[in-house]
């Protein structure tokens, strides 16, 4: 009796997760500047991956396999936060260099 319920819940979570990834990618096209695009990618993908991890957990054959999936989410989060920060810092340094160059030229 419970199995079909779990299956339906898994499919729903999986579809929701994929929708989040789709919307996050849409952010690349709709937002105009780099930093807003990073906002869309990091935050929406974090949530999308979270939903997919939740969908996979009931399928996990053992406790360790489940923990492994959760570990993937945690590591992906750390990587996405760090790379977002690095890209943002590079963009900001570029902007500052442009401003300084502009004030020297003008």
């Amino acid at each position: 009796m419970t199995e079909p319920v779990i299956l339906v819940a898994q499919v729903v979570l999986m579809v929701v997760g994929c929708l989040f990834f789709g919307v996050g990618t849409l952010g690349l096209f709709r937002f105009s500047d780099t930093l807003c695009r990073i906002h869309a990618l990091t935050k929406i993908d974090n949530l999308g991956l979270g939903f997919i991890v939740l969908a996979l957990l009931p399928l996990a054959p053992s406790v360790t396999a489940g923990l492994k999936v959760v570990l993937i989410w945690v590591v992906a989060l750390a990587a996405s936060a760090t790379s977002a920060h690095l890209v943002a810092r590079a963009v900001r340094s570029g902007q500052r260099a442009d401003i300084e160059k502009g004030s020297r030229d003008g």
């Binding site: 930093l35 906002h39 996405s80 920060h85 963009v91």
Partner: peptide, 10 residues
């Protein structure tokens, strides 16, 4: 960086 509306730059 993962909280609503903020992204740490520097």
């Amino acid at each position: 960086s993962l909280m609503p509306g903020t992204l740490s730059v520097r």
